[in-house]
């Protein structure tokens, strides 16, 4: 047995492995040593020339060499792979202080958010939503709501006229009428929508949104109305908010009230938003006038009801601290994108 040949192959192989710098190079070396025609296989083939007695020992020595070299290859392979991954990830380094691409933030308009929230609050009391047209006949917008023709109550709302008998609805109350005409009591409905007033200044837009609530049942009182609005104000603003009623006048309710809630911004201490009064007006309401019920074919002796109306923009102003009403109509992304939900 030629000890030197074993040693020669071993030294050559180990040297070649050490010198290799890439996985692909290592593979070539591996083929030249351990491959079908590699040096170790050559050695193996020489075993045939040996005597029977020498063969086992020789075979054992070859296997030992093969195992040793395979282990060396594996170790080197592992090392090279690690090295190569490292190099690759290093080359892929990014400066993450650079900004990412512009993300378009989908948003709902604050008016929609407020409507959705109000609807979800009143849904807990069993209310459901109804809507109606923007152009209303004089009958629906005024007459049915107990505004007689040539009555000064009509001056309370600056009206956009479309033709002799049609207006842009000045409130969402016509939806009450439409519902009472087409559905039977008991009723619990909410009517959100766009309304129009021929008026524009720092605190008035000619187009804004209201939500109207109507509850018709056999026994409905001002106490019920106060309970409902109080529940709403506490849920919408803050649990600590208090509600007070002030007498007022609307042709379609009797008694009528305007609703103030303790200012959610300052907790009633007085701030700019509440005009330093600690109270802020949020709604108009009252018990449905018997003339309105009769007009809709509902017997006022059997049924009673309450109705209330809230200004959506006003709610949004209070809730989101919006200082300029023009923002509602400009649709500026810098404004809209703030309303994350």
């Amino acid at each position: 047995m030629d000890e030197n040949r074993f040693e020669e192959i071993r030294v050559h192989a180990i040297g070649a492995i050490e010198r290799t710098t890439s996985s692909s190079g290592l593979y070539e070396v591996k083929v030249s040593i351990l491959g079908k025609h590699g040096k170790v296989s050559e050695l193996m083939r020489e075993m045939g020339k040996l005597s029977k007695e020498d063969r086992p020992l020789f075979g054992k020595r070859v296997n030992e060499l093969k195992e040793e070299l395979e282990a060396a290859f594996s170790a080197k392979e592992e090392q090279l792979k690690r090295q190569e991954w490292e190099e690759r990830v290093q080359s892929e380094e990014l400066d993450l202080t650079l900004p990412g691409p512009k993300a378009f933030r989908g948003r709902l308009h604050p008016v929609t958010l407020v409507i959705q929230e109000i609807v979800s609050i009143f849904q807990r009391l069993g209310f459901s939503v109804r809507t109606g047209p923007l152009i209303e006949s004089d009958d629906y917008n005024f007459k049915a709501l107990n505004f007689p023709e040539d009555h000064p109550a009509r001056d309370m709302q600056d009206t956009f006229f479309i033709d002799e008998h049609h207006v842009l609805r000045t409130h969402t109350s016509p939806i009450q009428i439409r519902t009472m005409e087409s559905e039977k009591p008991p009723l619990r409905i909410l009517a959100p929508g766009m309304v129009f007033r021929c008026d524009s200044d720092m605190s008035h837009l000619p187009q804004f949104h209201q939500i109207e609530g109507l509850w018709i049942d056999e026994k409905v009182s001002m106490a019920n109305l106060k309970g409902t609005i109080s529940f709403f104000a506490r849920t919408f603003f803050d649990q600590s908010v208090k509600v007070r009623f002030r007498p007022s006048f609307f042709p379609f309710t009797e008694p009528s009230a305007e609703v103030d809630c303790s200012c959610p911004r300052c907790g009633g201490q007085g701030c700019r938003m509440c005009g330093h009064s600690g109270w802020i007006e949020i709604a108009g309401c009252g018990l449905v006038h018997p003339n309105v019920l009769s007009y809709c074919g509902i017997d006022p002796k059997k049924w009673q009801g309450y109705a209330f109306g809230l200004g959506i923009e006003r709610m949004a102003i209070i809730k989101y601290n919006i200082e300029d009403i023009r923002l509602f109509m400009e649709n500026d992304l810098r404004f809209l994108e703030q309303f994350r939900v």
């Binding site: 209310f127 809507t131 009182s221």
Partner: peptide, 23 residues
């Protein structure tokens, strides 16, 4: 009006579905 108490109303009616177009 401050003498009016706050009482949530009760209804015998069943809640209805929202108007479809709104949904």
């Amino acid at each position: 009006y401050e003498n009016i108490p706050e009482v949530l109303p009760e209804s015998k009616g069943e809640p209805q579905r929202d108007q479809l177009t709104f949904l």
